[in-house]
Amino acid sequence: MNARESILCRVRAACGRASETTPNVATSTDLSSGGIQNRARLLAEFPESVRQRLSNPQPMTQPKKPERSTDELIRQMEAVQISVVRLQSTADVVAAVDWYLQDQGIEGELTVAPSLNALEWSAQTRFGPASGKESTSVTTAVAAVAETGSIAFASDEQTPTTLNFLPENHIVVLHESQIVERIEDVWTQIRSMPAIPRAVNLVTGPSRTGDIEQTIEIGAHGPKRMHVMLVAAN
């Protein structure tokens, strides 16, 4: 008996279901060969309560909704050292980035998420993932959560994950329409995507550590500064 089967046997024995066997459904490592369909066949072998829970989230207690999501989001973001500036339109982003970099005295290379390449960036602006050499990234997000002040990023070729972690300064262009109330609202959005992105990062402030004498220091491995440009809804 291989390790997988041994473990599953022991689990069933521990749950008083020693007589059951592992469903004989081949699962695939390749999406194109029908992994998803096989998964559905596998699920069909499970008890109703498990099937339910895997396909429909069950009601669980959630914190009460904030009265004004935008205000709550800004309050939460500022509490975790994310600075916020409000813009009237996406057309203001490039100028606002320049102004922010000057104001903060930030030098060095800038890398911008391909999702923003329609804006009027200077000719030498680089688009694409981060390499570790650039000081600053400008990215877009899929949502921001008023409950926690978190910004949700989903990876794809337009918004590579490294941009969220490697540069010292992370600027996020966020649209007011992207603000959601609670964490679960992000999942509604993710579930509606054609496929689950490789990475969904909920980022809640610049990198920090308390590992030396339990005292918080900013900028452990990820960005030292996080700046949100909140673009007004039309």
Binding site: Q76, V80, T148, G149, S150, A199, V200, N201, L202, V203, T204, G205, P206, S207, R208, G222
Partner: peptide
């Protein structure tokens, strides 16, 4: 309230 990096 929430850790800085919560990644899925």
């Amino acid at each position: 309230h929430f850790s800085n990096y919560t990644s899925f």
